[in-house]
Design a protein around this nucleic acid. Structure first.
Lengths: 167, 167
DNA sequence: CGGAGGTTCATGCGTTTGCATGGACTTCTC
DNA sequence: GAGAAGTCCATGCAAACGCATGAACCTCCG
């Protein structure tokens, strides 16, 4: 039954620093985990889950408070079926409304309701406060700006359709 | 039935830039989502889930390939019960071994097995390749270093126990 | 026009997650 | 030392997730 534990100390494994790209990504990931933990615990999410808020926030950022499920899917880290059901639940709760896309009858347009926007604003205010306390106290303003620029660039590169498989 | 959609365009809501801290965090989060999507899709995770690999990698980073569940919990973004069961499944799969902590009989020590380390190395090599392609092509070496330093600092601030609730 | 192929969303189903809780143990306090 | 308080891990259970798939629709091309 019991599997044998490793015998020797890593013999031919990679050193700690596995290149600048890997190091940077790992650091980004770990910091994201650490901050996220605090934000989730600290904030009062008021019966609005994190994913729900993400949807509300994403809708708000659009020009007219509405978006196709497909577009939401690009922003929210959730599988398409999960997002579909999340929207369904949010519609039942009155946070959003679902209507067919007149221009593409496959599509479902998700619209922010008044209740949804109230919830977004209420949670958003406290959430922003939380972020300022956690993130804003670790880095000064110049560093924050630099971090934002780097992440924007990283995101642009990762969203770029000119991404090819290594062939 | 149908909830009324929002009537007016956001009247008194916050402008796009909600402060440097919020902007930076949002950018970090979005870039993380974008990159993560590619890494998950692109890589061959070889029946080893992302969380599983995270545990294997975290164990490998320790001095002796072993760690308490409590310590793993600090690194992996997963609730304690979920992590507990994840470790249970990984033990059944032979990737890790569980043994009681001689120094603290409440504790469970998770040990990396040979099979687990093989899996880690196999997946890790391809995963690192993937990271270099996605992250390493978006930023140059100087930017990568800067990003790492900023994220390290951010993480240190978020891990710092001197974090107090606003009251 | 018509069919092949791609896109978009929803549903069935098994797995995984988180919350609440309990049991076992340690540490703190007097 | 004994009891109170805290820590650490596991389990019951409902909710949520992802994968595979299907139905409806759009688009491209002969």
């Amino acid at each position: 039954m019991s599997p044998s534990p490793r015998a020797d100390r890593h013999p031919g494994s990679a050193p700690v620093g596995a290149g600048p790209a890997v190091d940077a990504w790992e650091s980004l990931l770990r910091s994201q985990v650490a901050v996220w933990r605090l934000l989730q615990a600290d904030d009062v999410w008021d019966s609005v889950g994190v994913h729900e808020y993400d949807v509300l926030h994403t809708l708000h950022r659009t020009a007219d408070d509405r978006a196709r499920i497909r577009d939401l899917h690009r922003e929210v880290l959730l599988s398409q079926p999960s997002l579909s059901r999340l929207v369904e639940r949010m519609a039942e709760a009155g946070l959003v409304a679902r209507e067919p896309d007149p221009g593409d009858r496959r599509g479902t347009v998700v619209v922010l309701t008044d209740a949804g926007d109230r919830a977004r604003r209420r949670v958003g205010a406290r959430h922003a406060e939380s972020i300022r306390r956690v993130v804003g106290t670790s880095l000064d303003e110049r560093e924050l700006r630099a971090l934002r620029i780097l992440c924007d660039k990283l995101r642009a590169g990762a969203t770029d359709p000119g991404r090819v498989s290594p062939g």
